[in-house]
Design a protein around this nucleic acid. Structure first.
Lengths: 153, 153
DNA sequence: CCGCAATGGTTTCAAGTTGAAACCGAGTCG
DNA sequence: CGACTCGGTTTCAACTTGAAACCATTGCGG
């Protein structure tokens, strides 16, 4: 985990989310949660991660409000881990990461998968960044502004 | 760094990008690179990270083709680190992360910043996931399909 | 030319983190 | 009862991290 960094750059709105997520394992857990996994054993089998690590990550994700513990739907003793609203907000991060992966990491002969619209089975569009007026923006066409931006519109 | 995981879940297109990025510091370096930082000292000052760590992360990012070393534009001896095309592809990941951060981590009284369109100074739109036909898709409306998806269109 | 500061790192080493494996307790099935 | 599964926790060696010290090169004033 990244240490408590009060000296972090002014842009905490990247650093703090990263800190809340925790580490790569955590993000893979979240991805699996989007895929419908809910139980300790399911995550462990899917990720192949050591049980102590999984345990710690789940606890951290719950502590950060990304997952929540819910009782098992079948009334049995174990409980399950479900995405909260906040956790579901990470969907766009995962989509972005996956599209980047599709572009740069899918070699030929690999078990290639991609995201599709459940309803039609057709691939989804690439993410785009749009201005308020709908123009598509390239990386260089945005900047950070602070709250008291002069409303020049 | 995440260890070499051949047992990783079938969906390597999340895990491999994460592995390539390296760790949180690396992503903060990339963010700073988008903000125009290019020199070792600039990154170090911005992030407050130990020099050995920064050095290792820069090397890793270069090795993964996310940054590249370019000679200093002023002809001096030091060289600079610039985003490659692949590195610029991480823009969407950062935007997604930042919008998530804006939603869940910006408390009142914080030095709040957000992304704006450079041309107009107006905030950018939120990311959306769209189907091929343009419909907006919520997290639950997508799934992963493998390459040999039956083209039912 | 010499000294000195700044830049861009590398080395060292203590402290913290990770993860494989062993262990444990509760429930469940036969 | 006895074995087995599930969902963890504990243990401990190995690895990683990061603060500080160190080092090499460049730039610059005198």
């Amino acid at each position: 985990m990244v240490k408590r960094t009060s000296h972090q750059s002014a842009d905490c709105l990247i650093a703090r989310p990263l800190d809340a997520i925790g580490d790569w394992w955590s993000l893979l857990i979240v991805r699996d949660a989007f895929d419908g996994l809910r139980r300790f054993g399911e995550f462990q089998k899917s990720l192949g991660v050591a049980k102590n690590i999984l345990s710690a990550r789940l606890r951290s994700l719950v502590a950060h409000g990304i997952l929540e513990i819910v009782p098992a739907p079948d009334g049995s003793a174990h409980n399950e881990y479900a995405l909260t609203e906040k956790g579901r907000g990470l969907f766009y991060v995962l989509v972005a990461l996956r599209q980047w992966g599709e572009t740069y990491f899918s070699g030929p002969g690999e078990p290639y998968t991609f995201m599709v619209d459940t309803r039609t089975g057709r691939p989804i569009r690439r993410l785009e960044v749009h201005a308020e007026d709908g123009r598509q923006l390239a990386p260089g066409e945005t900047r950070l502004a602070d709250f008291r931006v002069t409303e020049t519109g």
